[in-house]
Simulated assay, not measured.
Amino acid sequence: MIDLTPITTVEALGRFRQLPPVHSRELAGLWRGSGVPTNHPLDGVLENLGWFGKRFHPNLRADALLFQIGPGRLVALDPAYIPLGLALRLGSLGRTRLVRQCFRFLQRPLRAHGHTATLEMQDFEGIRSAALVYDRQPITDRFRRIGHDQLFGMMSAHGDPRPYFFTLTRRE
């Protein structure tokens, strides 16, 4: 189990490096996400907007961003419509009630029409493990195994040196 109390990016990266790899074929299913606070601009933003997690399909395609829009009701949003650069620059704004309320109105036009990312095996610092490559954003999520039903994730946005860390826990 990863402790979700605030840590530094260096500490989170050290933990990530120590964990064993996971194979992309093992990930099929629904996963609940939670951010790991490291003072990244996106800390708390996804949770404020109702982020649920990710869904991986047996064909190695994925719903990269699942949001909860009601009790037991999930919707996949297309990351292509998210202004990544703006979100990284104005992260604190994404933690406000106003943005959360506006986001509710934007969920319908932001809905994905099909899967939005592909699972593959990638090397990171000499270790081959599962990675999720977004179709229309310069984002890669890399995964390491915490336990059988829990993963440690590291999101990298091309051109931004700051990784965003999160955990995923398998749901039935």
Rank of each mutant, 00 (worst) to 15 (best):
L98I: 12
G72T: 10
V75W: 13
F105R: 02
A62L: 01
L77K: 15
G53R: 11
L106C: 12
F103Q: 07
F166Y: 15
L90H: 08
R128T: 13
L119Q: 00
P79T: 15
A80K: 15
R17N: 09
R89I: 08
D3Q: 12
S92Q: 15
I69Q: 03
F165W: 00
V22E: 05
R136D: 15
R111G: 01
T38I: 09
L13M: 07
V45C: 02
F152D: 06
D141M: 08
R111A: 01
R128S: 07
V22R: 09
T96S: 11
P109F: 04
L84H: 00
N48R: 12
P163L: 11
G159M: 03
H40L: 11
T38Q: 08
F52C: 02
N39Q: 11
Y81E: 15
R97T: 06
H113N: 10
G114P: 02
R108I: 06
E120Q: 09
L151R: 02
I69T: 12
R97M: 06
H57C: 07
L88C: 03
E26W: 13
T169H: 13
R89W: 03
N39V: 00
A64T: 11
A130Y: 15
L151G: 02
F124G: 01
V22S: 02
D43Q: 09
P41K: 10
Q137P: 01
W51K: 13
L86M: 06
I127W: 01
K54T: 13
A28F: 14
F152M: 12
F166E: 04
D141R: 07
K54I: 14
P138K: 02
N39C: 04
L46S: 12
T116V: 06
F143G: 03
P109E: 12
